[in-house]
Nucleic acid binder design. Structure first.
Lengths: 200, 200
DNA sequence: TTAATATATGGACTAGAAGTACATTAACAT
DNA sequence: ATGTTAATGTACTTCTAGTCCATATATTAA
């Protein structure tokens, strides 16, 4: 009809940074509050007040968008402190990791992201490249320093140590799905360092 | 219209066992050949020559159906052999596990099942109850016997050992998504038993 | 053997989500 | 200023999940 005020607001291009921030915020909020199943392009566009077209243009899949939104939120200053005491540093690092998964509520989003990554190649790539592999490298570096200082055997396989320590946590989170807390960490670290066999 | 041969074949009740077997076979085949994304009630019904209604009646979700189909296929005689040599038994068990995930092609279905379990509560329950927890118990039993024979410390935490050994494999499979093979197993077991710290 | 019940089937149907097309309009670059 | 890029609303087209029904047959009980 002859609308006297034809200013259809909202039409037309908007600042890229503004759109991007809005989309990531909406996707992150949906992931945390309603889980991965709610992170669809249609739903995120609606919540962000954006257009679906924009999302299809910039992200390869809803999973990849969810991952990026999550990384943007969990901008935690992750750096291995090196106090010179390997055992203490590993315990501190793993305790903060487990606390993050449990008390800080990251368990569900992380489970769902890793879970979805098994059937979403774009999410899998984002997860590996931006999250898992860089963190493994940080852990490896700390272990390398420890080995150089004689706190680990010369022939210790650093990758296997990382797999054992962090893999044990993920095992409970993803595979067994049993509740756990940071009290297991000291035993985990001691067993990785000193073994489960009786002293010779 | 006045069809002269109104014998619409296929209508009506069919033997329950026959239907069930057909559905599980079709679901298993789809899972292996096309992945979890292909295991939908509609698709499985079509492949099995059954009706969607039947699947909705008997299974709570496509994931739960896929899990049951997979268990039915992987009827491997899983029993921990106890030769008295803990290290050898662990190596054998883990090598067969890793070989199953890699060379025997179970990596993808297992990844996708565990992955989907993170967002499908029915699949998660089936996985935990029918697969993960029973197998953990078998491993625990073997470790308990070893501890009783003095091959493990008195205070060794058997659950943590299981998490470390199997978790390390799942870590590479699910989280890092890097290729691996059974050659890591001996290092894994040695590090779990004797630790990564230098001998005192 | 017969009657009663349970249930698998084909087919159609609804609801909703994924993904696409297009004209419009404002941001951005020069 | 001016031309280019791109984000928007709206509408549209599949697709899929999930449901409903009437019918025919297996299964069970009598």
């Amino acid at each position: 009809m002859t609308d006297p005020a034809p200013t259809r607001r909202g039409r037309g291009r908007r600042p890229a940074a503004e759109v991007r921030a809005g989309v990531l915020a909406a996707a992150g909020r949906l992931l945390l509050e309603e889980g991965m199943a709610a992170v669809t392009f249609g739903r995120v566009a609606e919540e962000a007040g954006s257009s679906k077209m924009t999302l299809y243009k910039w992200w390869p899949s809803p999973g990849a968008l969810a991952a990026e939104a999550y990384f943007a939120r969990s901008e935690r200053t992750l750096h291995f402190t090196d106090t010179g005491d390997l055992r203490a540093d590993l315990v501190a690092q793993l305790e903060s990791f487990v606390r993050w998964l449990t008390e800080e509520g990251a368990g569900r989003p992380v489970s769902e992201l890793v879970g979805t990554a098994q059937t979403d190649a774009d999410l899998a790539r984002a997860w590996s490249e931006s999250y898992a592999l860089p963190r493994r490298e940080l852990a490896r570096e700390r272990l390398r320093a420890a080995r150089a200082q004689g706190q680990l055997r010369e022939d210790a396989d650093l990758d296997v140590i990382v797999d054992q320590l962090w893999g044990a946590c993920y095992h409970r989170l993803l595979v067994l799905k049993v509740p756990f807390d940071e009290s297991i960490v000291p035993r985990l670290v001691d067993q990785a360092l000193y073994g489960a066999a009786p002293p010779r």
